Simulated assay, not measured.
Amino acid sequence: MGNTTIGFIFLGLFNHTRAHLVLFVLVLTVALNSMVGNAFLLLLIHQDRRLHTPMYFLLSQLSLMDMMLVSTIVPQMAVGYLMGKKSISAAGCGFQIFFSLTLGGGESFLLAVMSYDRYVAICHPLRYSVLMSWQLCLRLTSGSWLLGAADGAMQAAATLSFRFCSRNEVDHFFCEVPVLLRLACDNTSAFEFVMYICCVLMLLIPFSLILTSYGLILATVLQMRSTEARKKAFATCSSHLAVVGLFYGTAMFIYMRPTSSRSANHDKVISAFYTIVTPMLNPLIYSLRNSEVKGSLRKCVARCDPLTRKDALVCLD
């Protein structure tokens, strides 16, 4: 029997074979593209005053969360694979759990706030400045961060309070609560039940709010007489719905399955998807489906490279 003071050893996501080396380079490329894409979207929203609205402020917070999530997971994984340093201290593991759950839980509530913003914009456009004021927007955003942090702190502290068996090898590439619980020597059934309840609250409640918002939006859009207004409303909402589907699908698959049905290889693939691939897709979805972001991007490209202005405009169109 052991404890958490000696830390853990990751078995990792890849082996040292040629095929896995190619996969590692591919994953690292995706992670770098995710960082660059989200950083560029943040800069674009900050620089263009036309994007200084609650909708794009919430989008900037989503990009910030995605950047932090990638930077929490990928550097440790890359160092472990390239340099063979696959160990992590108990404190480092606790910080990984805290930040990954803070960002995941915060993003869950932030997506619900974004759906409310779209509901107000489409169903009550004349009262938008009242129902979605900057003060309310900042409060809802802060609440998303705080609720995520509370969940992360609770689960990190509870997970590391268990005794772990002497073989502290984690068949994963970062510290994730369901995976660590397999190594615990203590009875974790009570904590697993509490964690399941937390996941229901952190995932299903915001998801229910999102479904309610989009049900009301759909009813309003179907009553619109203008075809152009319908297209604009559907284009605005489709981006958010795509991000919601990617996030909630993978999160529910990881945290809301019973322990008996878990597979280490499946968990690693799904975790890699929602911590590395999804953050890269989010800025692409919003930039390709949003006319205002595309307009700001065209303006930025034209300003940075006047000689290729015409080619850039045609390409982005």
Rank of each mutant, 00 (worst) to 15 (best):
Q135F: 09
G143W: 03
E107M: 12
L136I: 10
R118N: 01
Q135D: 10
H124L: 09
L103F: 03
L111N: 01
W145H: 02
T102V: 02
S115N: 12
H124Y: 00
P125I: 08
M132V: 09
R118S: 11
R139D: 02
Y119L: 14
L136Q: 07
V120E: 09
L126T: 15
S133Q: 05
S133V: 04
F109A: 04
M114H: 06
Y128R: 05
R118G: 05
L103S: 08
Y119F: 10
G104N: 09
H124T: 11
Y116I: 14
E107C: 12
G106T: 05
T141I: 08
S115G: 01
T141W: 10
W134S: 15
S142A: 12
H124V: 13
S144P: 06
S133P: 07
F99K: 04
L138W: 02
A112W: 05
P125G: 06
E107S: 13
C123I: 03
F99R: 12
Y116E: 14
S142W: 01
S133L: 02
T102C: 10
G143D: 04
Q135M: 07
S144M: 01
M114F: 06
A112E: 05
S100C: 15
L140I: 11
F99C: 11
L140V: 02
G106Y: 04
V130T: 11
I97R: 12
L111G: 03
Q135W: 14
G143F: 01
F99L: 14
Y119V: 13
H124Q: 11
L111K: 07
L140F: 02
G105L: 02
S133H: 05
A121H: 07
W134V: 15
D117E: 15
G105R: 06
V113L: 10
W134I: 15
R139F: 02
G143I: 01
L110P: 00
T141K: 00
M132G: 01
G105M: 04
S142N: 13
H124N: 11
F98G: 05
C137L: 01
L110C: 04
V130F: 06
M132F: 14
M132R: 06
D117L: 08
M114V: 08
S100N: 02
G143P: 13
I97E: 00
F109M: 08
A112L: 00
Y116R: 14
A121F: 13
S133A: 06
A121S: 09
V120C: 07
S133C: 09
R118K: 08
D117I: 14
L131T: 14
P125V: 06
S144H: 04
I122D: 03
A121R: 07
F98D: 02
Y116A: 13
L140S: 07
I122E: 05
H124A: 11
V130I: 11
G105K: 00
